[in-house]
Design a binder for these strands. Structure first.
Length: 263
DNA sequence: ACCTAAACCTGGGCGC
DNA sequence: TGCGCCCAGGTTTAGG
């Protein structure tokens, strides 16, 4: 499910309710999301740990513990962090004060890991930070002979964009998703830089896109699905020019664009 | 270093 | 109702 705006929305819902709380129990219903450590050891090492912050790096959530350990959660495609149960719960973190955080993941692509210190996640820059400049995007795109859309999805190059926001940002920028990155003009890179940032910040503003699996920590849907212009709109008329939106596959992912607005 | 494709899983929706 | 098929918002890995 979750791209940068969804993970940020979840973070904002989770942090205030777990900060300063201790983990008093970890219930593991299905161990398959737990990576790099046995379920028993994960539980043992988390018991008594106090949360001092919940941070986000791209699509990862990092629970910083008072001991300096980090519980790192990635939600994959269908992962959820909830303060109530749903039908796909795999792990439950019980906190002092009575709250429990449910990790749910129907498709099991999410990952839960524990680190002794702040982990190096090997991610590219976060495009929502003000330090992310046009020059940084040009460095990423300028010399590569791959479609611009594939590069936007590469977390090692630029972190936090997934398929929905890649499609939408390219529409806002008027750039065809199959364009080879090294053919973009400086002006197009500038437009794309703006489009990425405005699309992601709108995503955060509307609390994420609930097209299928995504809900926030309270089980509430986001609203950005009401603002999508191309994503999953194959065969529908473009809202700008009425041309039929096309669906193609790029980088093994469904890709939607307006053949007239995006060159 | 760059680029591509397969693999990991389960569930929802649709047509017949 | 049931079955088969297609689709799915991510990342890792192996290979060219």
């Amino acid at each position: 499910m979750p791209e940068l705006p969804e993970v940020e929305t979840i973070r904002r819902g989770v942090e205030p309710r777990v900060i300063g709380r201790k983990i008093i129990d970890v219930e593991i219903i299905d161990k398959r999301n737990i990576k790099g450590i046995s379920p028993a050891l994960l539980k043992k090492r988390l018991l008594g740990e106090k949360v001092v912050s919940v941070k986000r790096e791209a699509k990862y959530l990092l629970f910083e513990m008072a001991s300096g350990k980090y519980l790192v959660v990635h939600l994959g495609m269908t992962g959820r962090l909830l303060f109530k149960s749903d039908g796909y719960v795999k792990v439950i973190f019980h906190f002092s004060g009575g709250k429990s955080l449910y990790y749910s993941d129907a498709r099991l692509f999410g990952k839960i890991r524990l680190f002794d210190k702040h982990p190096e996640l090997k991610l590219g820059p976060d495009p929502l930070l003000n330090s992310f400049k046009v020059a940084d995007l040009k460095k990423i795109l300028g010399h590569r002979n791959t479609s611009v859309k594939v590069l936007l999805l590469d977390q090692k190059l630029i972190a936090g964009i997934g398929n929905i926001y890649a499609n939408e940002a390219l529409f806002r920028a008027g750039i065809h998703p199959a364009r080879k990155a090294n053919t973009l003009s400086d002006k197009e890179i500038m437009k794309l830089h703006d489009a990425i940032r405005s699309t992601l910040s709108d995503g955060v503003k509307y609390r994420g896109t609930s097209d299928s699996w995504y809900i926030d920590a309270d089980g509430e849907k986001g609203a950005f699905q009401d603002h999508l212009k191309v994503y999953r709109k194959g065969e529908e008329p473009c809202l700008k020019c009425k041309t039929k939106i096309k669906r193609i596959v790029i980088g093994q992912r469904g890709t939607y664009y307006c053949p007239r607005c995006q060159k």
